[in-house]
């Protein structure tokens, strides 16, 4: 029986309805997949320990005008990257890509340092190297202008940042409770923390343990209310396989994002090691700070995260 107005019979109308329904359903599913991506809701344990046992030295400092060579020498002095990145493993490299600044402004980790670490991990047999951060500025601009994105990609790493990188809940302890973490943390076998040495008006210095701000999702600004305790608790919650402190250029004032080249000093050094507290103490000394009087280093020692003594690091000198 055809409809008088449109000339369609029941069969055609039903087919039309079915097609429309299918299209609408498809849209709904697509929307769900794209936008409301099923997020991991169950909290992961809040202590992330990626350390490897063994090794004699707390760390080593290499100096020279080539940042990549410094990285190679410092890591070699610790026994080579094979010690930290195993065959077939996924390695997460966490540089400081906080700001929409160029390398010369020393607000982010040096791109050559990051790229060299990527190469060393791949040479050591890592299956996948991921470079990730939650920048303070626009992520795409920060990764591009810091040159960390292009350099690490060229070296063979996967680059991830928001909005394609999200957060997931974690049972973080103490002052960190309730904050979410970078969603790929539980999937990483090994993690290398690669801070840059910078001034910070509240904590005095932003170094390795402070760099963990960059794996915390929204709400991290409130951690500044008790910054020293918060930094130490971050150090307790995130225990990296390796810490590499970039002091190719350091920012001595107007940190942590600087801007003026007058605030940048060239130190041409890179330190690598497994004692995050000793490495932070070394970085603080470069800024002319007395590490024994720095709140977050004292707090970290109290938590047993390491020894705030830069002399435990081996000085390799200039090549």
């Amino acid at each position: 029986m055809a409809d008088r107005e449109t000339g369609r019979d029941r069969r055609q109308v039903l087919l039309g309805l079915a097609r429309t329904g299918l299209a609408a359903g498809g849209f709904g599913v697509l929307y769900h997949v794209l936008r409301e991506r099923p997020r991991e809701r169950s909290a992961t344990p809040g202590i992330f320990d990626w350390r490897r046992t063994g090794g004699q030295r707390a760390g080593a400092i290499a100096r020279g005008s080539d940042p990549a060579a410094n990285v190679r020498r410092a890591v070699a002095a610790l026994g080579g990257m094979e010690r930290f990145a195993g065959r077939g493993e996924t390695v997460l490299i966490k540089p400081n890509v906080g700001w929409d600044r160029v390398p010369e402004q020393a607000a982010n980790t040096d791109p050559d340092v990051v790229a060299e670490l990527v190469r060393l991990c791949l040479e050591a047999g890592a299956a996948r190297v991921v470079v990730a951060d939650f920048p303070c500025n626009d992520p795409r601009r920060s990764f591009t202008r810091s040159r960390i994105g292009p350099a690490a990609r060229k070296a063979g790493a996967t680059i991830v940042y928001p909005p394609s990188l999200g957060t997931r809940p974690a049972d973080l302890p103490g002052v960190l409770a309730g904050l979410e973490v970078m969603e790929l943390l539980p999937r990483a076998d090994r993690v290398i923390n690669v801070p840059v040495v910078k001034h910070h008006s509240l904590a005095k210095a932003t170094l390795g343990m402070k760099n963990w701000f960059g794996v915390i999702g929204g709400g991290r600004p409130r951690l500044h209310q008790g910054i020293h305790r918060a930094i130490a608790e971050l150090g307790a919650a995130f225990r990296p396989t390796l810490t590499v402190v970039d002091a190719t250029r350091i920012l001595v004032a107007n940190g942590p994002q600087g801007g003026s080249l007058d605030d940048v000093r060239r130190v041409d050094a890179v330190a690598a090691g497994t004692d995050p507290v000793a490495l932070d103490a070394w970085g603080a000394s470069l800024l002319g700070l007395d590490h024994r009087r720095l709140g977050f280093i004292a707090e970290a020692e109290k938590l047993g995260l390491g020894l705030g003594d830069p002399s435990s690091l081996e000085e390799l000198g200039t090549a």
């Binding site: 008006s201 600004p221 500044h224 209310q225 910054i227 994002q257």
Partner: peptide, 14 residues
């Protein structure tokens, strides 16, 4: 209560 977030974020120089 200590907080310096706005100062930390401020991008101008100085």
């Amino acid at each position: 209560t200590p907080c310096i977030v706005c100062e930390e974020m401020c991008p101008t120089d100085p």
